[in-house]
Design a protein around this nucleic acid. Structure first.
Length: 651
DNA sequence: CACTCGACTTGCCGTGAACTAT
DNA sequence: ATAGTTCACGGCAAGTCGAGTG
């Protein structure tokens, strides 16, 4: 008899047992469409069957010697009973999709903890003020965190050093604390060298050793990397607890260098269902708490000590629960598409309002819509880097030019956004917007809020009234997806070959990334790899010239000789030229693509903003294999879309 | 309302595995 | 087979947004 695990494995191979989001047709409201009801019913049946299957297995264990025919009879009777129970239990579906219930059954093995600290060998010494000093294990561990970062520029920054030293001293014994009073007198170089040597050694490991580590990782993955949620075996995203270390934050972070504490079992909250096998804490330890909250999706949580925020272990994007949410996000954006004209007309009207708060709201919304700015929640000063979004823009972040380079009413934006990425843009705006901005800035200091009568909560409440489920970030999703669709339409030409079409796709993707300001640091090896590519192109050009010469002489030869053999030679030379031309074009396309991509990150928009059905439909329409657009993980994440979208899908 | 907290999405980057050229 | 290069993947910080509280 098949085990439950085997059944799950098979199910994974065959894809999901018809989750509700599979196989849609473009209906306005798929959630409540008859088709959806049908697929829900289908899934319900599958679930019930799974439950039946487990009961069936149980019985078969108890009555192992009974013959199969009898068991089949029991199975049939069970099916009938379950069907009746299902008919009576009309709340089943409601509970799953409303009231915030996220699952009915959840079982997992808990987190994998960071490996314990391994003291460094005694010959690796730490010096204070030139003298060797043996540190206590606690102080030593924190010292190694610093030693490992010695090559980074930020260990020279005052804030980093100050924060680190303060937290380090907390870990010291009182004797150490009395002695070590100045970070400048600390010499970590031997430690640093030791870790460099260690990482070299790791690289130089033999194949067998590497293989062994790989197998061990795979074993841990198999044991801890999956959970069972409502009869589906699902991949967990981050089942490993973050190891201790020094916090580095992004940009100019006031907390950089602080010690990120080691997480212990007594810090961990486990979430699972009551009827599941509760994960065991490591021997001799206890969990902080075990709870059974099916209104949330996380399996494990703990409080992190830098910001005091909660961290979670959740499921992989390929899971039902994430996929469904993702799909829902794009459906909301599609609903916005239907009423965006009305909303735009509305905010343009609101620019004229006599109420300041309404005009501010309308101008902010215009920026969010036109420039794809983020909402911009207020942040606690001194707790994080100073970054802003739309609602938290300050006067110092924009400049107004009544005229600039031949354009009227130009606004210049210059601020640090999420992750301290700079947003710089000059845009001409409507005269009314411009006049309003002038008013908003009147009698204000540079560090005053531009929209002093507005915050994200007010804005989102307003948006909620305009459309159910509408928030500021829906505009980003909507504008990103609609831009991709429109760009794909514009850039793709039927005659092009596949590499050229993919270049078009990347260009459309790039337009979105630029809109959303998704930047990246140019890769460290960019210049070199560009040169390499260029020399390949040059070599290919030479090769082409040679091939053409050969073709020419072959033709001349054929003219003189007029025999079969020389004709054939001409043909084969022609083919060679063609092949080389194609290769050359492919390389050139690659070079263009890479150059244009130097400072732009495509990944974020692809993963978070572009309705995958647009891409899938485009692939189907032009006969491009989806693998050219989405890699394996991406295909897993977007399984729902790949299954759903036909070539005529419209966002 | 303002403020905080909790849950969840979004975002950039470094590492190491996989691939390619030599 | 090895070295160099590319790319996928995971890590984890930093956002968004809604709910609860006083």
């Amino acid at each position: 008899m098949k085990s439950f695990d085997e059944k799950i494995k098979k199910e994974k191979e065959n894809g999901f047992a018809s989750p509700p989001y599979m196989k849609s047709e473009p209906e306005d409201d798929f959630y409540h469409s008859p088709k959806h009801e049908r697929s829900l019913k289908r899934e319900r049946d599958d679930d019930d069957n799974d439950q039946l299957y487990q009961s069936y297995m149980l019985i078969s264990v108890v009555t192992g010697q009974l013959d199969v025919l009898l068991l089949d009879c029991i199975f049939v009777i069970f099916t009938v009973i379950m069907e009746m129970i299902y008919l009576l239990d009309s709340r089943w579906e409601e509970e799953r999709y409303t009231d915030g219930v996220k699952w009915k059954f959840l079982e997992h093995k808990g987190p994998v903890f960071a490996p314990a600290y391994e003291p460094i060998p005694s010959h690796v010494k730490f010096y204070y003020d030139g003298k060797h000093m043996k540190l206590s294990p606690e102080a030593e561990e924190v010292a190694t965190f610093f030693a490992k970062m010695l090559d980074h520029e930020y260990t020279t920054k005052d804030i980093f050093r100050k924060n680190f030293f303060k937290d380090w001293r907390k870990e010291m014994t009182s004797e150490e604390r009395a002695k070590i009073t100045d970070l400048k007198k600390c010499d970590f170089t031997e430690m640093s060298e030791y870790f460099k040597a260690q990482s070299e050694a790791r690289k130089a490991m033999s194949k067998e050793e590497k293989q062994k580590i790989k197998e061990e990782n795979e074993r841990i993955l198999q044991q801890y990397g999956f959970c069972i949620m409502d009869n589906h075996k699902e991949r967990i995203a981050n089942f490993r607890i973050e190891p201790p270390g020094l916090f580095r934050g992004r940009g100019d972070h006031p907390k950089m260098g602080m010690l990120k504490r080691r997480i212990r079992p007594q810090d961990i909250i486990i979430n699972c269902s009551k009827d599941s096998k509760v994960p065991e804490p490591p021997p001799g330890t206890k969990w902080k708490e075990v709870r059974h909250d099916n209104k949330v999706t996380w399996l494990v949580s703990w409080t992190e000590n830098i910001q005091g925020s909660i961290k979670y272990i959740m499921l992989n994007p390929s899971s039902r629960i994430k996929g469904e949410k993702d799909w829902q996000k794009y459906e909301t954006a599609r609903r916005l598409k239907k009423c965006v004209d009305r909303i735009r007309a509305q905010y343009r009207e609101d620019w004229k309002s006599k109420e300041m708060r309404i005009r501010q709201r309308a101008v902010a919304l215009y920026f969010i819509d036109k420039l794809a700015l983020r909402a911009g929640n207020e942040k606690e000063e001194g707790e994080t880097a100073d970054t802003v979004g739309c609602c938290s823009l300050r006067v110092e972040h924009i400049k107004l030019y009544p005229e600039n380079e031949g354009q009227e009413y130009v606004v210049e934006f210059d601020f640090l956004g999420k992750d301290s990425i700079r947003y710089y843009n000059r845009v001409p705006v409507e005269k009314r917007v411009f006049k309003n901005l002038q008013l908003f800035m009147e009698n204000k200091e540079p560090d005053d809020d531009l929209f002093d009568r507005l915050n994200t909560s007010i804005l989102n409440k307003h948006l909620q009234e305009l459309m159910d489920g509408l928030t500021a970030k829906v505009f980003r999703t909507y504008n990103a997806s609609i831009t991709l669709q429109q760009q794909l339409k514009e850039l793709t030409t039927a005659e092009e070959n596949i590499p050229a079409k993919i270049l078009s796709y990347n260009r459309a993707n790039r337009a979105v990334a630029i809109l959303c300001n998704h930047q990246r640091a140019p890769p460290k090896t960019f210049e070199k790899s560009m040169q390499n590519l260029q020399s390949k192109i040059d070599a290919k050009r030479d090769q082409l010239a040679d091939a053409k010469r050969e073709l020419k002489s072959a033709k001349a030869d054929a003219k003189v000789r007029k025999d079969e053999k020389s004709k054939k030679a001409v043909e084969s030379k022609k083919k060679a030229v063609q092949r080389i031309e194609e290769q050359l074009m492919k390389l050139e396309v690659q070079a263009t693509d890479r150059e244009e991509n130097k400072q732009i990150a495509l990944g974020t928009s692809k993963l978070n903003y572009l309705d995958p059905r647009i891409s899938v439909a485009w692939c189907k329409k032009w006969g491009i294999p989806v693998e050219k657009i989405y890699n394996k993980t991406q295909r897993e994440k977007f399984a729902w879309a790949i299954d759903m979208a036909e070539e005529d899908y419209e966002f």
